[in-house]
């Protein structure tokens, strides 16, 4: 199984890759108090490049700056790009002020992808913490669109509270699909919450997948991914069939600004999706 997953169009951006292209906001949706989803379409011909689930774009708010944001829309849906963004800093706050019709700059797609197309017949285990569900969503949508290519599909999503869950309605829709298991958990909840309470790792032993044939894709805070890996290992799923996506400060997205280094890896170029055993040495250290 390969771990360096080449996106469909990796070379398309080589020339002038620091130049954004104008994209127009088509629609905007509030996910929760600090998270929103925007759908974008290219303002100019020839700038819509195919992407693979797990890849990201650099979104530029005019005069404010760029932020690396993973693509959260379906890879099947071709003419727009969807991004789910949490408002945490200057750039993401500027992006939050966008309304349909507004223009932003976009560079991308960049980075490696979930190995979703290389997994026919496998059980798929998706584990998400908070907004970590966003980069997983294109892979989940791909799997659902090609349902017969895969074994069981398990989606385990955790958040701090029910209000913090993103794609809440969609999660419940996925739950109704045949042979799809969706389990939700939150750290704290009121009496109207009828799913689980506790950290997302507690869902793993309850999930129904064949550890000998399953591949896990995990995204969330680093501490959550570390404990998820331990729990998956305990349940028979080895690091070599476990994929995570990492996040670091990024300026260039093409491996030359140095910011996103993680040991020997440039997360923008060699990641953000990594096979866990390949980065385990560095992932087990603090402050890498």
């Amino acid at each position: 199984m390969s771990s360096v997953l080449h996106p469909p169009d990796a070379s398309a951006l080589q020339a002038g890759s620091m130049l954004p292209e104008p994209w127009v906001v088509v629609s905007r949706l509030e996910e929760n108090a600090d998270t929103f989803t925007i759908e974008l379409r290219p303002a100019e011909e020839g700038t819509l490049r195919p992407f693979a689930p797990g890849q990201f774009n650099m979104l530029y708010a005019f005069g404010t700056g760029e932020s690396a944001i993973s693509i959260s829309g379906s890879p099947e849906n071709s003419d727009t790009r969807v991004h789910t963004i949490r408002r945490v800093g200057t750039v993401t706050s500027a992006l939050d002020r966008l309304a349909p019709g507004d223009t932003i700059g976009l560079r991308g797609p960049f980075g490696s992808a979930w190995p979703i197309e290389e997994l026919p017949g496998r059980d798929l285990v998706f584990v998400a913490g908070g907004i970590g569900l966003a980069p997983l969503r294109p892979a989940i949508l791909h799997a659902l669109a090609h349902r017969k290519d895969y074994g069981r599909i398990v989606i385990l999503a955790g958040a701090r509270s029910p209000e913090d869950l993103i794609f809440h309605d969609e999660l419940l829709e996925w739950k109704e699909e045949p042979d799809v298991e969706v389990k939700l958990t939150v750290d704290r909840a009121g009496i109207d919450w009828y799913h689980h309470v506790g950290v997302v790792t507690t869902l793993i032993p309850q999930a129904d997948f064949d550890p000998a044939n399953a591949v896990a894709m995990v995204c969330g805070p680093e501490i959550m991914m570390r404990f998820t890996a331990v729990e998956l290992n305990k349940n028979g799923l080895p690091d070599s069939r476990l994929f995570v996506t990492l996040e670091r400060n990024m300026k260039c997205a093409v491996g030359i600004c140095g910011h996103c280094q993680f040991g020997p890896e440039f997360i923008c170029r060699d990641g953000p999706v990594f096979r866990y055993d390949h980065i385990h040495h560095w992932f087990s250290q603090r402050e890498v």
């Binding site: 620091m18 005069g63 700056g65 760029e66 300026k251 260039c252 030359i256 600004c257 140095g258 910011h259």
Partner: peptide, 24 residues
């Protein structure tokens, strides 16, 4: 050493912006 950061600036009209790269 090759690392760089970027800085975004605008003029007073807010309609002309620049992106500068500098050593980091």
């Amino acid at each position: 050493c090759f690392c760089t950061t970027v800085e975004d600036v605008t003029d007073l009209t807010g309609d002309n912006a620049e992106r500068w790269r500098s050593w980091d």
